[in-house]
């Protein structure tokens, strides 16, 4: 795949506060990339810098190997779906979608044709004469997507576009967005704080915290091999434990030695260890690697979320089998379920 966009050491300062601390990132053609992080981590700022709405304090942006750092927003081949859609309230659906084409002075026939094609793509045929203010949130969302895509950009930026929708609609739109992306075959850069959304849709996830990239990888990489405590904690639920490596494939925590699949650390190096709640099995106390007492068991729909108190810490365990609180149990996990990470700030 060809590199389409390259961020080179992007720094952004707002009133003396560093929002982005030197972002280096490459984005390929036809990729669905998600910038994921908690609110205030700088992900939206990075997107707005790419869109041309905010100037970076330092650093360069390349688009197809041409620097676009100083190209104004209206000249960039990038379109945006804004957080609150930003539809023009004085225009109907057709005129909203046709706005960009009108600006480019395209002929009436072509505009008509392209807008109709977009309306079909987002499933809004027959809505062209409706005023946008009369549409539901989901419909406005579709108009916003159509309005951006009709300009045939090479990149579509989406700034938390599903944030205002209810859960069911959000899930529907997630699949639809992914479908649209495959259909039009362009790069989508998607900003969200919702890790589930990121895991569902992305080809590549960029986890950002405090203006720094924490990890870049596929959803599976990010989930299974979090690079540090922050990523492990932010993506899904996890038990994060401090420990140290005895040698390759041997880690020690809670005064016990465990086999693991990680290597390449220094001997006796302090590490963070993550064990996902669904990777822990509840067994009889004799069979377990750690012993503990179940303190609570909450029904979550598909699984029970249990809190198991052991000598050193409470473990969260997800299991489909109910065990009543107060019972003494053993915890069992396999070597590949133990993920060893570098301590934050040392990698």
């Amino acid at each position: 795949m060809r590199t389409l966009i390259k961020f080179e050491n992007i720094v952004k300062e707002f009133d003396g506060q560093l929002v982005l601390k030197g972002i280096n990132l490459e984005i390929n053609e036809n990729e669905f990339v998600t910038l994921l992080g908690p609110s205030g981590c700088g992900k939206t700022t990075l997107l707005r810098i790419l869109g041309g709405f905010v100037d970076q304090t330092e650093g360069k942006i390349f688009f197809e190997d041409i620097e676009i750092s100083n190209v104004p927003a209206y000249k960039r081949e990038i379109n945006t779906v804004f957080q609150k859609y930003a539809l023009f309230p004085h225009m109907n659906v057709f005129d909203n979608i046709a706005f960009g084409l009108h600006i480019k002075k395209q002929s009436k026939d072509i505009i008509q044709q392209k807008v109709n094609k977009m309306l079909r793509l987002v499933g809004l045929d027959g809505f062209e004469d409706k005023m946008v203010t009369l549409l539901s949130g989901g419909q406005q969302q579709r108009v916003a997507i159509a309005r951006a895509l009709v300009n045939e950009p090479m990149v579509l930026l989406l700034d938390e576009p599903l944030g205002a929708l209810d859960l069911k609609l959000r899930k529907e739109m997630q699949h639809e967005l992914k479908k649209i992306q495959k259909e039009v075959g362009i790069t989508f850069i998607y900003v969200t704080h919702d890790q589930e959304e990121a895991l569902t849709m992305s080809d590549k996830i960029v986890v950002i915290n405090n203006g720094e990239i924490q990890q870049i990888g596929t959803p599976i990489d990010i989930y299974n091999e979090p690079e540090n405590r922050f990523v492990a904690d932010f993506i899904g639920e996890s038990n994060i434990i401090e420990g140290f490596m005895i040698e390759d494939y041997q880690v020690m925590f809670d005064d016990k030695k465990f086999e693991c699949v990680d290597y390449g650390f220094d001997d006796k190096e302090s590490v963070d260890i993550v064990i996902r709640p669904e990777d822990i099995d509840i067994v009889t106390p004799e069979m377990g690697m750690l012993k503990g007492i179940i303190r609570s068991s909450i029904f979550k729909g598909v699984h029970y979320e249990m809190s198991v108190e052991t000598e050193y810490r409470d473990f969260i365990v997800h299991t489909t089998d109910y065990t009543e609180p107060g019972k003494e149990v053993g915890l069992h996990f396999f070597p590949e379920d133990i993920h060893v990470m570098y301590k934050m700030g040392t990698y």
């Binding site: 869109g51 709405f53 209206y74 945006t80 804004f82 023009f88 706005f99 600006i103 480019k104 951006a148």
Partner: peptide
């Protein structure tokens, strides 16, 4: 809404066009 101006900008309108149309 300032984001309407951003949207106009995003869709290729220059300052004058944004003023006229939005």
């Amino acid at each position: 809404d300032r984001s309407l101006i951003d949207a106009g900008n995003d869709l290729g309108a220059n300052k004058l066009q944004i003023f006229q149309k939005i």
